[in-house]
Design a binder for these strands. Structure first.
Lengths: 205, 205
DNA sequence: GGTGTGACTATATTCTAAATTAGTCACTTG
DNA sequence: CAAGTGACTAATTTAGAATATAGTCACACC
């Protein structure tokens, strides 16, 4: 929920305004159904009963609208991960579920909402703020899990925290990043378990 | 060097024939200079002074010629890796150099021979035999390194060998696979070292 | 049987003119 | 001053005709 977490292509005009919400809602439906490229800004305008020009009172560009939608999509993945992590008893288990949830929600998006997935992949490919924020959030959650594991004595403490987190993040990257995930669908069945095992072995004290 | 390692789209006609070699040589130059798509089969025919039809006495298709070139490219990477591994004193060091060499030769190809890189990436994307064979070879070398490490007592022996190798292979995948490597250029500087550290920690007895 | 080709077709690619689209701006209305 | 738009332009996309290409085949020469 909440707001667009990014800063730069944020938008224009009043941040809370019923029309802005209408635009985002219409965009969510259209992008999901017809895809980002195939929906025109005029389509969105027509859908909410205003002129195209009015849309630009609220968003800098079509991409900014795409960002808003992408942000929502990626935020929902982060939320699923947060729930999974919160529900796990130990840091070890938190890590396992984190990885598993990340992959399964990503894959679910790919197969059930391909059009939205494509926007997310595009976003990741272009380095849009929404994608950066997403990666940042995942990294923070991971850092917290590793930190807790160290405190609990489940994980080793010699390697600098940042270094460990960075390396584990690199391992997960092909399944975190929507742009990459689509090329790794073959491994989606076993990768979370196999790689979790490997990472946890490397985290062992 | 040697032969095309694949089986299916192998070719036609005599396997050792000066004209076949001429075709491969011309293809190597043309593909490298103008790219796979921009070179026509007629171009190759003209380059070696024969008719286009004659080329098809030696190769099933243009793709088969692409395969031959791709095979050579990927084989040269494998050879570089083999040399690096052979030159390392310990299995631990073998692994480090293997990963490092894999990335540096891949990146080198990307920046110095982009056109050939693109063929390799395409090959990996389409699952051409040349790419499969390449992945297979890398996996074999990795298996041997891990096996030696276990024998030498440097690596743990509890986890099944295949499982360990598979997981490590997955970790390296984004840097092994030319299709994926191009999306991971940002991490190319630190990934080999960071991931080698992580993997070696996980391999520790 | 081995070496080699011109002429052919179906498919893919390129080119270009016409149509859409993103984005702006001066303007109206209440 | 906030809400809202029609008309405009530059850039992009589309459509579909013209061109080029992959691949085949029947045949010629030695």
């Amino acid at each position: 929920m909440s707001e667009i977490a990014s800063s730069s292509p944020h938008s224009r005009g009043p941040v809370d305004h019923s029309v802005r919400e209408q635009i985002v809602e219409a965009a969510g439906e259209h992008f999901s159904q017809y895809g980002y490229e195939k929906t025109t800004v005029s389509d969105l305008a027509k859908a909410i009963g205003f002129s195209k020009a009015y849309i630009y009172k609220f968003f800098d560009s079509k991409q900014a609208i795409g960002e808003a939608i992408c942000s929502k999509t990626l935020t929902s993945i982060v939320e699923a991960v947060e729930v999974a992590v919160a529900g796990a008893p130990t840091p070890t288990e938190k890590f396992r579920r984190m990885f598993k949830t990340l992959v399964s929600t990503g894959v679910g998006l790919f197969f059930n909402d391909r059009k939205l997935y494509d926007i997310a992949a595009h976003s990741a490919g272009e380095g849009w703020p929404s994608a950066r924020t997403y990666a940042q959030r995942i990294r923070e959650i991971l850092t917290e899990v590793v930190r807790q594991g160290r405190e609990a004595g489940e994980f080793e403490r010699k390697t600098p925290l940042d270094e460990t987190v960075h390396a584990v993040f690199l391992v997960m990257q092909p399944y975190i990043n929507p742009l990459l995930l689509q090329y790794n669908l073959d491994h989606v069945e076993d990768a979370p378990v196999q790689l979790s095992n490997l990472v946890l072995r490397s985290l062992a004290p």
